[in-house]
């Protein structure tokens, strides 16, 4: 009896090893198949991704709180260290912006008068929802961020995302309680923009570096370092005039843009619910 048991035990170990190796091979095949499926039929894979993201979003949010608190503590110490110089810089900025404020008020009232005289159509109002960044990509190969708001908060794919000073990206995946932003620096990001000075249209193309490039729709455009870039509103998902960045260099005719938003230090963002009025008079 004992001999049979020990023989069975002796057999069980190699069988276990074979099963484990077979399982490993099968899982490697499954992972490869999933990558290929993601390339061929993005809809099925993206739906699966959304399910996993929605399931794990609450856990991610819980974990993100202490990490954010730690980051806030380090930033706080850094701010204390630079308190004096920061104070000086802010004083100068307040003075400069106060002058701009009076100019802006005058231009606003002038603009309102001209619009009234020209019977100009009223721009659609932009509503927004706020959300917290709960995870970033953590990978050098994609530039995305996960938000703690989803379809139940009125968020849908394609909506523009902004921080205080400019455009962050656009929503590409929307779950019920989470959504993903594709940052303007991601290599799959394409944003219709316009040069504020010359009003030339272009597409802002991400390349996974910190500095996206401009691809112009028309040739012969004179670009200067320092030119400001804003959204053009083409496509109808992101409102026109949202500041994007500034041209920092022009290499072989290719303009390199530095986004206004510091994408590494985002905590809260606003998702723009912008919808153009319907063209047809549908009921």
């Amino acid at each position: 009896m004992n001999t049979t048991r020990s023989r069975l035990k002796g057999l069980a170990v190699p069988v276990k090893v074979v099963v484990q190796r077979f399982a490993l091979v099968m899982l490697i095949v499954a992972a490869s198949a999933m990558i290929l499926l993601g390339k061929a039929d993005t809809l099925v894979v993206e739906r699966f991704r959304l399910i996993l993201t929605d399931v794990s979003a609450p856990i991610v949010e819980v974990v993100s709180h202490p990490v954010a608190a730690f980051g806030g503590m380090v930033r706080g110490l850094n701010q204390i260290w630079h308190l004096r110089s920061e104070n000086e810089r802010l004083r100068e900025e307040v003075e400069r912006l106060s002058n701009w404020q009076s100019v802006a008020r005058r231009l606003e009232s002038e603009n309102a008068i001209y619009k009234e005289q020209l019977h100009s159509s009223v721009e659609p109002r932009v509503a927004f929802a706020s959300a917290r960044v709960i995870a970033d990509s953590g990978s050098p190969f994609v530039r995305t961020m996960l938000l703690n708001a989803g379809a139940r908060d009125g968020i849908s794919n394609g909506q523009g995302v902004v921080a205080q000073v400019g455009l962050v990206g656009r929503i590409v995946d929307t779950g019920s309680r989470s959504s993903r932003i594709l940052l303007v620096t991601d290599l799959n990001s394409r944003i219709p923009v316009v040069l504020e000075r010359s009003r030339h249209r272009a597409i802002l193309v991400g390349n996974n570096s910190e500095l996206p490039r401009l691809t112009f729709l028309n040739g012969g455009v004179m670009i200067e370092v320092g030119d400001r870039v804003a959204t053009s509103g083409h496509g109808g998902l992101i409102p026109p005039g949202v500041p994007v960045g500034r041209v920092v260099s022009v290499i072989d005719g290719v303009a390199v843009v530095q986004p206004f938003v510091d994408l590494d230090r985002l905590e809260y963002v606003r998702i723009l619910r912008f919808e153009l009025p319907r063209l047809s008079g549908a009921d």
Binding site: A31, I35, V45, F48, F141, V142, T144, L146, D173
Partner: peptide, 10 residues
Amino acid sequence: DALSGTPMGM
């Protein structure tokens, strides 16, 4: 992959 946005399975 789901959370970071990298291709699923990678």
